[in-house]
Structures are given as C-alpha cells and as structure tokens.
Computed example of a mutant assay.
Amino acid sequence: NLRAAFVSAPDGRFWQVLADGVEVPVGEIDLTAVQESVRGAELDRILTADRATRFDMSTAPLLRLVLITLAPGEYRLVLTNHHILLDGWSLPLLLRELLTLYVTAGDGSGLPRVQPYREYLAWLGRQDAQAARAVWQRALAGVEEPTLLAPAHRGRELSTIPDQCRLDLTEEQTQTLTAVARGRGVTLNTVIQVAWGLVLATMTSREDVVFGATVSGRPGQIPGVESMIGLFINTVPVRVRLDYRESVGGLLARVQAEQAGLLDYHHLGLTQIQAAAGAGAVFDTLTVFESYPVDRAGLSEDTDLAGMRVVGASAHDATHYPVTLIASADTRLHLTMKYLPDLYDTTTATTLLHRITHVLDTITTDTTIPV
C-alpha cells in the first residue's frame, strides 16, 4: 500500500501502480546552531514549508520523512504522506509499527501479519452500487438546492492550508453531555451532527440542510479490517430536517436512526451519491468525529523504546471544504474549527464554535424543549 503511485492513462482514468521496491526519502535538518529564542519559529517555518510541498502522484512513495535535531538528544520526526495512501485511523497503526521496527533494529518478524488491502478492494467490487445509489436518492429526496455556507468564491484561487481555532468543553460539561447522549441512546457523533445542523440551518435560513461527514469506511465483514493500513474513509452527506414541533431529544433520535439506516451504504463514493441525488447532495461544510486507535502506553514518556522516549505526537491535515468541524473526546470534548482564511476570519470561526457550544449546553440542560 505504501509504495503505490497513481498514473493517468490516455483515456483520462487513473491507475494505481505498485512498484517492486521503494526507498523512502529521509531528510535531516540540524537546528542546534539556531538561537534557542527563535528555534521554535524556525521549526514552524520548516513544518509549514513541508506541508506546502506537493507530491508527484506518478512517483512512489507518496510519503517522506524528515528528522529535525532541536537540541542534543532532542528530535522531531516529521512524517508527511498524501492522504490517498492512508487515513487517520491508519496513522497510529503505522507509527506503532515504525516504533516496533526501531526497537527491533529493523527486524520485522515480530510485526503482525499484514491483512492485504486487496481484500477490501475485492469486497468493494462485490457491492451493489445501483442499490446503494437508490438508497441515497431516497435519503436525500426533496432537497432541491445545495447547502452552501461560504460566500461565493467561484473562479477564485483559494489557499489550501486552513487556519483553525479550538474550544474545549470542561470535564464536567463533557461528562454531562456524554450521560445525556447515553440516556437518549445516541452517540456523541450524532449530538455533534445535530448541533452543527441547527447552527447551519440558522446561518442559511433553512429548515432542511445537508453537510458532509467523514466515515471510517471499514466494513465489519472483513476480518481484521480494524488493523489494516490504507485509505478507507469516505465523505457522505448528512441531512438534518427540522420540525419545530419536535423536541431536541426527538431530533437526536431521528437523526441517529436515519444515519444508522445508511451505514451499509457508506462505501458509495461521494461523486456517485451526488450524481444520483442531485443538487441537494452538494454541500461546503464537513464534520469529523475522530476516534483513532492511539496506543497511549506506547506514547508515554515513561516508556523506554531502545533508549528513546516519545514525549509527544501531533498531526496536521486539511480538507478542501471552506469550513470543517472536527470533534474528539477523551476526558474532555475538543472542538476544532478549520476554515479557509480567504473566506473566513478568526472572529467568524470562533463565533461558529460558540454557537455550537451554546446548542450543546442547551441539549445538556433539557432535551424535551422544542427545536
């Protein structure tokens, strides 16, 4: 999977090509001579430049490594990959294998058996695309227009690197919200989607809105799919219809049921869904609920890895949507708003976050109030 390249054929289609052997480029940068007061700024500059450096899709590998020496015995390892190779769920799995290889001096005999990605592709090829298109067409029937939040930007060249702002709920707020969700029989993901649906409906003056949601795309029918490294995610439309006589709790239950009914059809590509459902399936905002299999013990400062300790890990990615709402939870619910700086400023993005948290506060207070 990690040695794949993508080349265009004369008929306009792209083919995935697997090379026999691929050497991963590894760069080294030494910042020990840089004055400590400006070393952090120089590191940020390097990371920003690295994220802006594009891959040649026809040449494998579509990933690279850079080892940055910050001080004697202190390093930053930067792994950059094109999203077409692997998704967010795969990244902790890849890092775990990389650390294992480090500890064993490159001996891969102790790694788990690789579940071939071709098994997923074979499963995908067996699915009934026509039946899936019909389901999505019914699910989005009656939505006649795209749900667009961003100001018109057709023809403008936009920045591809988003800005972001973040807001965290307290542990107490998170516990209360989780208890309310559990009591209503819904997931935190559904709560976030309903909250965004309500804010989006207000911002667009509509009672029927559609936005995107990133789904894991890992079918339970494939044994070991949870440990496979590759690209599985898909973006699918989420429809939130408002009935002002309905309670908030009723809305939560209905959206959860509607989304559950579409689980078996998450494999259909977004372009196919939009072709089947029409303009109503078009949107420019996205929600993501992150729940990755991170090995907290392996990333603990107390864990000795052949003389090395991992003191922290962070990730950066981007979407092409003007607004992306990312939620993740541990003891606290973390909300991140990513936005294209050519279309939005920090004040607008922060205002959207506060509106979302206001809805969440309302949900935790009373789910019987009408929408």
Rank of each mutant, 00 (worst) to 15 (best):
residue 233 I to N: 04
residue 234 N to G: 10
residue 237 P to V: 06
residue 240 V to L: 11
residue 244 Y to K: 13
residue 246 E to Q: 15
residue 246 E to F: 02
residue 246 E to I: 06
residue 252 L to S: 06
residue 255 V to W: 01
residue 258 E to I: 08
residue 260 A to E: 13
residue 261 G to E: 09
residue 262 L to K: 12
residue 264 D to V: 08
residue 265 Y to E: 12
residue 266 H to F: 14
residue 267 H to K: 00
residue 268 L to N: 07
residue 271 T to P: 04
residue 271 T to V: 08
residue 276 A to V: 09
residue 276 A to W: 02
residue 277 A to P: 14
residue 278 G to T: 14
residue 278 G to C: 13
residue 279 A to Q: 11
residue 279 A to R: 12
residue 279 A to S: 11
residue 280 G to C: 05
residue 281 A to Y: 13
residue 283 F to G: 05
residue 283 F to N: 04
residue 283 F to E: 02
residue 284 D to E: 05
residue 286 L to W: 11
residue 288 V to W: 06
residue 289 F to E: 01
residue 290 E to W: 02
residue 293 P to S: 04
residue 294 V to H: 02
residue 294 V to S: 06
residue 295 D to R: 13
residue 295 D to V: 11
residue 297 A to N: 15
residue 297 A to C: 08
residue 298 G to L: 15
residue 298 G to E: 15
residue 301 E to A: 12
residue 301 E to S: 10
residue 302 D to K: 06
residue 306 A to G: 15
residue 307 G to E: 14
residue 308 M to G: 00
residue 309 R to G: 01
residue 310 V to S: 01
residue 311 V to L: 03
residue 311 V to S: 01
residue 313 A to N: 06
residue 315 A to P: 00
residue 318 A to K: 11
residue 321 Y to R: 09
residue 322 P to K: 00
residue 323 V to H: 01
residue 323 V to C: 05
residue 324 T to G: 07
residue 324 T to Q: 05
residue 324 T to V: 12
residue 327 A to T: 06
residue 327 A to E: 03
residue 329 A to Q: 13
residue 330 D to T: 12
residue 333 L to W: 10
residue 333 L to A: 03
residue 334 H to N: 10
residue 334 H to R: 13
residue 334 H to S: 12
residue 336 T to N: 03
residue 336 T to D: 08
residue 340 L to T: 15
residue 341 P to Q: 01
residue 342 D to Y: 06
residue 350 T to P: 01
residue 355 R to C: 07
residue 355 R to P: 12
residue 355 R to Q: 15
residue 356 I to H: 11
residue 356 I to M: 15
residue 358 H to M: 14
residue 360 L to E: 06
residue 360 L to W: 08
residue 361 D to F: 14
residue 362 T to E: 14
